[in-house]
Simulated scan of single mutants.
Amino acid sequence: MKKFKLKPVVLALGLSVFSQMATAVLFSDKAVVKNDGSERVIAKVNFPKPVSGDLYVATQVGGQYLFLTNGGNEFTTDVVPLASNSEYVGEHVLFDFSGAGIAPGRYPLYQVVTQPGTDPLDFTNWVGGLGGLSSFQYSIGLPPSVTNDLNNDGFADDDLNHDGFHDDDLDRDGYHDDDLNRDGLHDQECTDGSERENDQKSKDHEGNDQEGNDKEGNDKEGNDQEGNDKDNNDQESNDDSGSEYINPCAPAPVPAPVPAPVPAPVPAPAPAPAPAPAPAPAPAPAPSTAKGKALYAGLGCAASSCHGATPVSGQNKIGKAINPAVTRNAIVNNKGGMGVLSRAGITDAELQAIADYVKNPQ
Rank of each mutant, 00 (worst) to 15 (best):
A250L: 08
L133K: 04
P259C: 11
L66Y: 01
T347C: 12
N323Q: 10
D54E: 11
R196A: 08
T77W: 00
N213R: 13
D204G: 04
D229P: 05
S145Y: 05
D178S: 06
E87V: 05
G101P: 04
D119V: 03
N323K: 13
L160I: 01
P48Y: 15
E226M: 12
A294H: 02
A303C: 10
A256K: 13
P273L: 12
A276C: 07
P273S: 14
E216V: 14
P120D: 02
Q315E: 04
G14A: 02
K7F: 12
A83P: 03
S288A: 09
A344Q: 10
P324Q: 05
K203W: 11
E197D: 14
Q225A: 11
V32I: 13
D157H: 04
G242K: 09
K230C: 07
S342G: 15
F123T: 10
N333S: 15
I354T: 05
N334L: 07
Q64E: 12
F136I: 13
P281H: 07
N213G: 13
S38Q: 11
A24N: 10
A282F: 02
D96T: 11
D187E: 14
E244G: 09
N323F: 13
L170C: 07
V312H: 07
G212W: 07
K359Y: 03
F97S: 09
D234N: 10
K203Y: 09
P281I: 06
N35E: 06
V358H: 01
E350P: 15
S194C: 09
L82F: 08
L68T: 01
Q137C: 06
S304N: 14
Q188R: 14
A43C: 15
K220G: 07
N152F: 08
D158P: 13
A256I: 10
S19G: 13
V93H: 02
T327E: 06
E211M: 15
S145C: 05
V41C: 07
F95V: 03
R343Y: 11
V32P: 00
A297Y: 05
T289P: 00
A278H: 09
I42S: 09
